[in-house]
Design a protein around this nucleic acid. Structure first.
Lengths: 199, 199, 199, 199
DNA sequence: ACATTCGGGACGGCCCGTTCCT
DNA sequence: AGGAACGGGCCGTCCCGAATGT
């Protein structure tokens, strides 16, 4: 029937569909059948590209982490004032976030909360991603200190950790409340906290 | 065999076991069979007390919320200086938290992140619990403002929201990292942020 | 609530409801809960009067067999011409049978077909009932032979057996077809066969 | 473990085992687990071939009906004297019937009596099978009338109906009595009744 | 005599992940 | 590259019966 064989497209389609499903239902709750249903493919196709459901999940996680890196790490690297920069990204994030994205929460955090205690392969990769994120913020802050725009008394690493944690927490709270307003309120306070780091 | 008919004990035993299992595996991943296995009971007993897995999950959630209320809301009510108080609870929490509790994360947040988008019955109750928490903190801050120990410029509701979100985020980050140190680092920063609220 | 305590009434009500349910769903398929639901009683009442579901089933079977005896055996005993008599009962049976009774089939045969291979307590009683029935017909035929209205060459026992079997078969066929017409057609042929027994 | 991938064999094995179990316990009483246990297969295999127990039951019914057709319909089609023919099949049937087959009764009739009032999908198919059987006998009788070996006064359709019903009834009676003798007695009378149809 | 509560146990449908086969 | 077959687990349901009340 479907004589159109294009491994790249197939793989991409599976990943895309899996991302949706996992975002919606979590990894455990995600149904391989439903993932396939959305693509029109069958089990054989999937297990050709991804030996197990876990492999698929890890691949999806990789995708997500790249999105995250592009949104947070890339801009931070070429940044004069990290505080302005972080506030800017924060604003931008809130604008691009759709209703659905608020309800479903941060896909990375969802996976982290669900899978960290379940599976070390997930956990190690997830921890690495969060480390990269925190490191990115910390280094930007340190550059800010060197440039004299961030208070030297600030412990960059601790502040970066708190920033990432709080942001994640804000998004989690908004998810449970299904409320963009709460996200705004919470992110606003976070932005104001950033001000306390200035030189 | 079972010469002991004690419904209260039975129900308690099921709830206790379910709490453990759900904390470990999440609600979706929790196996009713394993919950039962740990109690020595069979499906009939469970079905009598909790018609469905969901009912069981909701009951477990209720338990958790009571623990939370006892830890946070009760102390806050009779509190002269809410900031000292929150810092105090924070310290206490970190001391009672066991290695396992850090790895597994906050059971309430776990449920919230997993179930909010999946099921409205869970979500509504979870949202209500977080609201109560935030309200409790906000009201304590307001009382602090009236008593002159908290800066009147502080918006109590926003600060409370941020506090709850950040704390949750800290615990989530520590869970993924499986690191008590990160929890300490993050909570320390949160405690210091509280200082900025003083009059 | 229901302060009306009348053990006889209660027992009767249970039996009546059980008869309905068993007739409709068979013994295995019959639900004790549903039997009780129709009476407004609870499990305690039932298990007070009938220690097990099987006991209840056997009691229902006894009821049915009495109906059967009243319809077939009583009239046959005071009967000049057994052939006329059997034809008469046949006609009468078809008139009293309601649509529902045709669809659900003969309750005695239903039980016999379902339970005979499953349970010896049922089977022995059921076999005894069919024996009584056959004996009743056979003895009537013999009296007919003595009276000169039935052909002496007829083997009464074999003829009675065939009569009972055929009648049961006719009703079974009509049940599957859900067709009163087929029952009429089949019973008519059976009535004509009776003519061949005349002296 | 199972190095043998042979869907045809698997399906056949399931059907065979299900036939046994259903014949023994009835459809409602049949345990899918026991059916599986006898084959060494697991639920997954069954679910692949038969999505539900009902589907399995219908497939088993189909098998039975083919056996029946082969035994009764095929021989009748090429038959000079239908009365001789029917008597011949009757004798043959009694010889091939084993002790067990008498105790358990006719599988087709068992299903018909159990399932007709419960499920229309069963009932419609069962009614169709009995119709085919009756039609087959009726047409054979009509050919006999054309050939001059069957009395023209006989109403073929009514006679065929009675024949099928009586035979079924005989087997049912023998089942309850667990008595091959009764089956012989009853079938003998039926065979003699066939004589009354001759020209 | 009856209601209520409690619990053991089985069953069926579903689905998942995987391996074989085409 | 992918379709079909299969092993196995899990959950919700329900049923029956026993142990208590009243």
């Amino acid at each position: 029937m479907n004589q159109m064989r294009d491994p790249e497209k197939t793989k991409k389609a599976i990943l895309e569909s899996a991302l949706q499903e996992i975002h919606r239902k979590g990894f455990t709750g995600a149904s391989v059948n439903d993932i396939l249903k959305a693509t029109g493919l069958t089990r054989g196709a999937l297990y050709h590209h991804f030996p197990t459901k876990k492999d698929l999940g890890l691949a999806v996680m990789e995708m997500i982490s790249q999105d995250m890196a592009q949104m947070w790490l890339a801009p931070l690297e070429q940044c004069q004032d990290p505080i302005n920069c972080l506030q800017q990204i924060l604003r931008q994030a809130r604008q691009t976030l759709k209703e659905q994205d608020i309800i479903l929460g941060c896909p990375l955090n969802n996976l982290a909360q669900e899978m960290s205690p379940q599976d070390d392969d997930f956990r190690i990769r997830l921890a690495a991603m969060y480390n990269r994120w925190r490191q990115g913020v910390a280094q930007a802050l340190e550059r800010g200190q060197a440039a004299g725009v961030v208070d030297r008394a600030v412990e960059a690493y601790a502040a970066a950790t708190f920033f990432v944690a709080s942001l994640t927490g804000c998004r989690g709270l908004a998810k449970t409340a299904q409320s963009p307003e709460i996200l705004g309120l919470c992110a606003g306070t976070l932005a104001r906290w950033l001000e306390t780091l200035r030189a």
